[in-house]
Design a binder for these strands. Sequence first.
RNA 1: UCCGGAGUAGCUCAAUGGUAGAGCGGGUGGCUGUUAACCACUAGGUUGGGGGUUCAAGUCCCUCCUCCGGAGCCA
Length: 429
Amino acid sequence: MQTMISEIAAHDGETVTLKGWLYNARSGGKIRFLLLRDGTGTIQCVASRADVGEETFELIDTLTQESSIVVTGVARADKRAPGGFELDVKHLELIGRADEYPISLKEHGTAFLMENRHLWVRSRRQVAILRLRHEIIRAIRDFFDNRGFTLYDTPIFTPSACEGTSTLFETEYFGEKAYLAQSGQLYAESGAMALGKVYCFGPTFRAEKSKTRRHLIEFWMVEPEVAYLDLEGDMELAEDFISYIIERVLENRQEELKTIERDTAPLEKIKKPFPRITYTECVDIIKKAGHPIEWGDDFGGDEETVVSSQFDAPVMVHRFPAEIKAFYMKSDPEDERLALGFDMLAPEGKGEIIGGGQREDDYDTLVKKIKAHNLPLEAFNWYLDLRKYGTVPHAGFGLGLERTVGWICGLPHVRETIPFPRMLHRMKP
RNA sequence: UCCGGAGUAGCUCAAUGGUAGAGCGGGUGGCUGUUAACCACUAGGUUGGGGGUUCAAGUCCCUCCUCCGGAGCCA
């Protein structure tokens, strides 16, 4: 029977079998220290010539880093051991001898680590980050599932753009042009009219030549869409959503946060309600900070940081100029120049993690907006049907998973938040 | 795509235009409590590719490639 290293404390004094990989080895004259990892943790195994016998002792001296081994021995609490417990080895079996492992315990450059991403994921830090990603995904699903949302999977092959602005990956679909989805939103809107409250959650693709610490070419996005919801309700939903994710991570993943040396104080400070400020107020804040900006300009990374650094919690900026926002956004009835949309900016200068808002629900207005954005009307016939057959006010948003993971983990770059990041000019391994 | 920086041993980095080096990793040996162990010895190089200047180029010039950082666009 196999015992996982994370559960070793429950087996103090017992004989257990651990299965894993050799992380590091140190030797004394007649004693060997083997650091074993199994994906749940690491433990120091101690082997003496007298305990394991001549043959096994010599085998141990030939073990290379990352060789897979099965070790049986007695678990024992020991202050000298990293992790508090160690294993007195009785038997050791070599499963697969590793070739010279490229990733040593010393420092490496980013390029080298990215080229060896398939091996890099074994390292302690990467394991912790991937577990945090998993926790965040589970929290996302639980949040919506517990609130009566239905998962509504949207297609990845799509016949046309949903926003004219971003660049799409073009591919071929049995002789027809097809594009990889850059958002599931328009399809999710059809789900809201069928099921009331839905969300889609999947990979999305943007062929933008973006080369920054916040961009991936392929990234995961969760997009809720709710019938009979307005902008204010949408912002409340987003605020509850983010609060829930943070709460879950702090509750379940202290160990991993410690491993990656994340200071949790900024996360613990996050409490509802989140600040809500209008785009127009934002422009004033940015101007006062000495950045040149005019009403009507979109925010760059620096501008976002100026705004978000003024608050402990994520800040929601709403009512952007309609001109710089997508065609499907509803205009503010109190000021037609404004769109009923919002962005949520993460604290600590991590930038936009959510974009969303209320959708245009009037048929004629939507047709005008599609035309004004120079988009082909016929591609949106099905979408316009949603306004033709029982239109209702509705709203939703999209959350970028990798940016959220990067923020919560306190990482400077999103490339470590997904097992195999697809970036500009990098598709290997 | 634009602006900046960098490519030297498996990895991280040194080397005034004048004989390419260290630490780690690998190999061999030593050590009974190591914590990225330590000590000794040892192997390991077309200095990113191509062209040029020079008596002489890792070093200077041109060009291409790759990577890193930033900008724009966006989640």
